[in-house]
Amino acid sequence: MTYFENSKIFIVIPAFNEETVIQGVIKEVQSAGYENIVVIDDGSSDNTQAKAAELIGKMAFRHKINRGKGGATKTGIEAAKLLGADIIVTIDGDGQHDPKDIAKIIAPILEKKCGVVLGTRLLNPKGMPLWKIFANHFGNFCTWFLFGLWVTDSQSGFRAYSKHAAELINTRADRYEYDSEVIREIHLHKLKFKEIPVAVRYTKYSMGKIHKQGFINGFKTLYKMIWGLIS
């Protein structure tokens, strides 16, 4: 039996008001061959949890109040750890990531080459709007400047962690600055990491969502990152 067959791989999907797409995302993950799926409905005002529960039952959790993408992701990772995960993969709930890439993302961890794998959209930015590419480069610069580690996509939500890395990484951020805090933790704990290009699917749906990382939210994220350093 291989390490892959022995490993418990958990896919964590934070979701906020994604009732129209969440089942599609879960089905795609299942089709890619992963059964352990944890969905965290981050206090949605729609039926995201109910829709997810139709496919994964009790593994569809719900925050009673909205705590942000970082807060929901952290809850999902905690759940996966409690359920005995060996590898934890985080993937966005709006369907922008292709679950077929999960195999690429977890491969370096299965081969024990590193503890964290960051899916990077900027090594393969096909379909990504120009302003988004620019904003991500700016985010990378700020993350490097504040936290001291250069990565090509500091805001990607598509990541994989070994059990050891998931235990070490300790974040405080609840909102979008969570992604950058993970980079800080990788640097702080000197964790080995690898960046793997992943496909990105920007649809009308995902681009139209108002809560997504926009210009104003970008500055809020920057402010929170700076505040986290001085407070």
């Binding site: 959790f61 719900r62 009673k64 109040i65 705590r67 807060g71 809850t75 609840d174």
Partner: peptide, 12 residues
Amino acid sequence: QSLSQVTRNETL
């Protein structure tokens, strides 16, 4: 942060 922790504990 306390609010997030309470929400997380309740969820899990």
